[in-house]
Amino acid sequence: MHICFLTNEYPKAGFPHGGLGSFVKTMAETLVAKGVQVTVVGLNYVFSDEIENVNGVNVIRIRKSKVKGLAWYFNSKNIGKTIAAIHKKNPIDIVEGAELSLAFLPKIKEIKYIIRLHGGHHFFAEGENRGINWWKGFQEKRSFKKAAAFIAVSNYVKSHTATYLSYHNKPIEVIFNPINSQLFQPKNVAIEPNNITFAGTICEKKGVRQLIQAFPLVKEQFPNAILNLYGRDWLFPDGSSYIKMLKEIELPKLGEYAKDVVFHGAVSFTEIPNAYAKAAVCVFPSHMETLGLVAPEAMAMEKPVVFTKLGPGPEVITDGETGWLCNPHEPKDIANAIVEVLSNPEKAQAIAKQAKRFVSEKFALHEIAQNNIDFYKKILLF
């Protein structure tokens, strides 16, 4: 079997990437270990073509088009030509991409095209409190029509996406994203008892602003608390920095507590476990998630986790049993959950151990990879 993943975010040293890139890397390398041939095709981080084999995965990065206004057309055309050339030499069975990826991609009749629901434009419109951009909305609808099947990374993303878009009666299956248990496992590292850690893109939909607003309420009971924020900056449509906004508007409201909010910037995927290892509590108060791997990754390391009660939160955490769920729009609710963890370290550790057992079963890498292989085989029969 030959699988081709479409992504522009496949991890590359020296360049930031998101959760989609991390997922594809983890899944691709595991599929290779199971005897599946995997190719990744996407646009390069720099203006050049590049081909490399990374741990058995053939990664093809294509030079981005610089044609203003028509870059989308030429990029899709070049990706399509690349896939056709690969297929002619070494037939591809499945092409898989995210929600928008098939919109302008020429289809080859021998290939089955699958969309994995990582959270598309329609899905996140509500979470970001904005309307549907007609151009992105058009692309997403066009892409969905071209898919032979769908994989949803949670029951929530499956049901919520269906309120906006049709699956056209095509097969759809819920398969959680896996955890890389070799990377995310307990470490013999001293825990910093006042260390509150967040990891993810520093943006509004991840609940960072409300987490900062919750921080003074935590400081009232734990004066030595430190809020560590790991992640890349997000830019507003006008190009301005979200972190800069936080520093200019939100941090001054904290007064003397502002010095204890630390922005560490983007860190590599392999460095994140070191950040979690030192934390007394990991907090991810997202407004909207498809699944949110950061929470189960931290849980896999036996860390007490505070996660959002919205969306897929209850699929990942049973409140009070495997972690804590909070209202991400209410700073007081976020603070209360953090204070409960810091006030009860023995209880928190017992819950963290239970959390690890849960994710070891539900997010097991090789089992989930096999679930994907089984689904691919089923689609190839259609």
Rank of each mutant, 00 (worst) to 15 (best):
V24L: 07
K25C: 07
K25Q: 14
T26V: 10
T26K: 02
M27V: 07
M27P: 04
A28P: 05
A28T: 13
E29D: 08
L31P: 07
A33F: 03
A33G: 02
A33E: 00
K34P: 09
K34F: 13
V36H: 03
V36L: 12
V36G: 07
Q37S: 10
T39V: 08
T39C: 07
T39K: 00
V40S: 04
V40I: 13
V41R: 05
V41C: 04
V41L: 08
G42S: 02
L43Y: 02
N44H: 08
Y45A: 03
V46Y: 12
F47L: 14
F47R: 15
F47T: 11
D49L: 01
D49F: 03
E50H: 02
E50D: 12
E50G: 01
I51E: 14
N53G: 06
V54R: 07
N55S: 13
N55I: 10
G56A: 12
G56F: 11
I60N: 03
I60W: 09
R61M: 05
R61F: 01
I62F: 02
I62L: 15
I62V: 11
K64N: 06
K64E: 09
K66H: 11
K66Y: 11
V67M: 08
V67L: 11
K68W: 10
L70N: 02
W72S: 06
W72A: 09
W72C: 02
Y73G: 10
Y73W: 14
F74E: 06
N75Y: 13
N75P: 01
N75I: 00
S76A: 15
K77H: 11
I79P: 04
I79Q: 09
G80R: 09
T82R: 09
T82K: 14
T82L: 03
T82I: 04
T82D: 08
I83N: 09
I83C: 03
A85D: 11
A85R: 14
H87I: 03
N90H: 15
P91Q: 08
D93G: 04
I94R: 13
I94E: 04
V95I: 01
E96C: 11
E96S: 10
E96K: 03
G97T: 01
A98M: 00
A98F: 06
E99R: 02
L100E: 07
S101D: 07
L102D: 01
L102N: 06
A103V: 06
F104H: 14
F104C: 12
L105A: 07
L105N: 05
L105I: 06
P106W: 00
P106S: 04
K107M: 12
K107S: 09
K107N: 08
I108N: 06
K109N: 15
K109M: 12
K109Q: 13
K112A: 08
K112V: 01
I114A: 08
I115E: 06
I115N: 05
L117V: 00
L117G: 06
G119R: 10
G120I: 05
G120R: 15
H121T: 11
H122F: 15
F123N: 06
F123L: 07
F123P: 07
